[in-house]
């Protein structure tokens, strides 16, 4: 996993700008004025203790949550639930969920083709070719006609990634995509995401896989109590965390046993 070139210049123009984003559920402030600029081709990994607002943050970026303050701009266009072009904006922001969320009544191919053909009105044959090529890359071309219930969790999640990719989004959001998987299936999903990173896809990834975070991230964001507590390159964050809170958090991932 470590073969990713660190010297590679990954930062392009700013693509997604989050400015003082605030999200409240009734009295509870989940996100407290978060600001973040995502550059083209950048891979950002968001980590943090449960309940810190990581998932909510991602969901806001796709306007699945309404926001109470601040703004989110993609190429300067505002992402909010009130935007009339919301469906168009959402096409530019792909999202993969923890629970896969393939459509159970459609087979793999139709799951992938639904949005490109119905929303983008692209020709079925053309998208089908693309979808099959992508399925072949992840070794699932033989499953094109299978229904989601016939697939393993890891296979479902990889199909879900392809489904989002076929819309040609400019940013991909991954919301704890391996959290529901058996350990031996985690790898196959992470490998797909790693390959996307190498292709230069812009991605925001929420994960609990610290090894993976370290390998894939250009920048790690440590979220705590609804705000960015610390951010920086993965080496710096994992080896020399600046804040006490981050040190505590990272400690929960290391195990040691006192032997006398």
């Amino acid at each position: 996993m470590a073969e990713k070139e660190m010297t590679e210049v990954k930062k392009g123009a700013p693509l997604l700008v989050v400015d003082h984003l605030t999200k409240r559920f009734a009295d509870l402030t989940v996100l407290d004025g978060i600001s973040l600029t995502v550059h083209e081709g950048e891979v950002i990994v968001i980590v943090g203790p449960s309940g810190c607002g990581k998932s909510t943050f991602l969901r806001c970026l796709n306007a699945l949550e309404d926001i109470q303050g601040g703004e989110i701009l993609l190429h300067g266009e505002r992402i909010s639930q009130n935007n009339k072009n919301l469906t168009e904006l959402r096409q530019k922001v792909g999202m993969v969920f923890q629970s896969y969320e393939l459509f159970p009544h459609l087979n793999v191919l139709d799951n992938i083709l639904l949005a490109p053909t119905r929303v983008q009105k692209r020709k079925r044959e053309e998208v089908k070719e693309e979808a099959l090529a992508l399925l072949a890359r992840i070794g699932l071309e033989s499953k094109a006609e299978s229904f989601p219930r016939q697939l393993s969790g890891g296979q479902k999640q990889r199909v879900a990634i392809i489904r989002a990719l076929c819309m040609h989004p400019e940013v991909m959001l991954f919301d704890e995509v391996t959290a529901a998987l058996d350990p031996e299936m985690v790898r196959e999903v992470l490998d797909v995401i790693l390959e996307l990173a190498n292709q230069g896809k812009t991605m925001l990834i929420v994960t609990h896989e610290m090894q993976f975070a370290r390998a894939i991230a250009d920048r790690v964001i440590f979220l705590n109590e609804g705000d960015i507590c610390e951010e920086g390159p993965p080496e710096e964050f994992f080896d020399h965390p600046k804040t006490e809170r981050a040190r505590q958090f990272l400690q929960t991932f290391t195990f040691s046993r006192k032997k006398s």
């Binding site: 096409q91 629970s99 969320e101 009544h105 639904l114 819309m167």
Partner: peptide, 27 residues
């Protein structure tokens, strides 16, 4: 039909009517 199904369809850019017709209704 789980609410996340609606969300995942929305995240693909489907409109409210399309979600109902292609995702919710058949299920």
């Amino acid at each position: 039909v789980d609410r996340v199904q609606t969300e995942s369809a929305a995240s693909l850019g489907l409109s409210g009517l399309q979600i109902l017709r292609y995702v919710i209704f058949p299920q």
